[in-house]
């Protein structure tokens, strides 16, 4: 068996999410290689040489210069066919967009959002369903399996020393579909905060914060070195940008500490943060469902409790 890990690039660097797919490959236990494809792949490849891969394969070519599934899938499929039977990518928005396209190209079965594996008796993949209210164990019946893996369940692989040889691979001929999609731009808010998927602490706000979302949460997040998250209601209302949404249909996080502020705790929200080590909830409604999963609950008005929390934390520093 042979696993191929697809790296995710952002601004010429490997995104840390990639190391979750590497951790998955290590659990599979077979030899694995990492494919880095896209603009800046050559320079970024070195970042992945110390993780025990057989090879780090690199493709930097005009054909794959844009991060679009239509452009990347042909090359990934071409490399996959050179002897790989498990193709893994982290289930970020990049991975979820891309992996099914690769699977269809290979005629392979696709297991999305894998959260654990069993290796005895052939590979079996565990994946969440029904907003995390059930887990299914599934097998892929095609010779090649494509999987996307949950960053929250596979902690980033640690460097294991050594230096994998870096090898260039050619880009595959472009798909006709690629000429019918054009990347216009990425509108990203510049933020000094850690990425939601990687943060040790996440401070999340709900509908209750209204227009004061940033004003109330920024000082707390700053003090804790936290990423900021939000409920769907807060995103829908425009209090927070959509990319901050945590939940079944947003980002899935499992930090050491998750602080839910003015969030009721709908099942769709819980699906994205229930795996956190310690959960704190601040809500003025003592019966809010969020308290059923919180390790520490504070029934209080957030507009007084959060500033008080900030000054209490400052005291101890």
């Amino acid at each position: 068996m042979n696993t191929l890990v697809i790296a995710e690039l952002a601004e010429g660097h490997v995104r840390k999410s990639t190391l979750s797919a590497v951790a998955f490959a290590k659990q599979v236990g077979a030899p694995f290689s990492i494919l880095v494809v896209g603009a800046g792949a050559k320079a970024a490849a070195a970042e992945l040489a110390g993780f025990g891969a057989q090879k780090v394969l690199v493709c930097e070519d005009a054909a794959v210069s844009q991060t679009l599934a239509e452009r990347l899938a042909p090359t990934i499929a071409q490399v996959a066919k050179t002897g790989f039977d498990v193709i893994a990518v982290t289930a970020s928005s990049f991975g979820k967009d891309l992996a099914p396209r690769v699977a269809a190209k290979l005629g392979a079965g696709y297991a999305p959002d894998v959260s654990a594996i069993k290796t005895d008796g052939g590979l079996t993949f565990k994946r969440p369903m029904y907003a995390g209210n059930a887990y299914g164990w599934c097998k892929v019946s095609t010779p090649t399996a494509v999987v996307s893996v949950r960053q929250s369940e596979f902690s980033a692989a640690e460097p294991s020393g050594g230096s994998s040889p870096v090898e260039a691979v050619a880009a595959a001929p472009a798909d006709p579909a690629a000429s019918r999609v054009e990347f216009v731009k990425l509108e990203a808010a510049k933020s000094e905060r850690p990425d939601l998927g990687e943060a040790r602490v996440v401070v999340s706000g709900g509908r209750a914060l209204k227009e004061k979302f940033a004003e109330v949460l920024d000082p707390l997040a700053g003090l804790l070195g936290a990423a900021i998250g939000a409920s769907r209601a807060a995103c829908d209302a425009g209090y927070a940008p959509p990319e901050l949404q945590v939940g079944q249909t947003g980002r899935v996080v499992a930090p050491q500490l998750y602080v839910a502020i003015g969030i009721s705790g709908a099942i769709q929200h819980l699906a994205g943060m229930k795996g956190s080590k310690v959960i704190v909830a601040i809500n003025k409604d003592p019966d809010a469902p969020i308290f059923q999963v919180a390790d520490y609950g504070l029934v209080a008005d957030l507009f007084t409790a959060v500033p008080e929390l900030v000054s209490e934390l400052k005291k101890g520093q």
């Binding site: 887990y135 097998k139 003592p286 520490y296 609950g297 504070l298 409790a305």
Partner: peptide, 24 residues
């Protein structure tokens, strides 16, 4: 023919409610 076959299901690990604190 299906490419994915489910062989088992299980509930998620439970999570118990913790404590309510009185003050910040």
């Amino acid at each position: 023919a299906l490419k994915i076959q489910y062989v088992g299901f299980e509930p998620p690990p439970g999570r118990k409610a913790g404590v309510k604190v009185k003050t910040v």
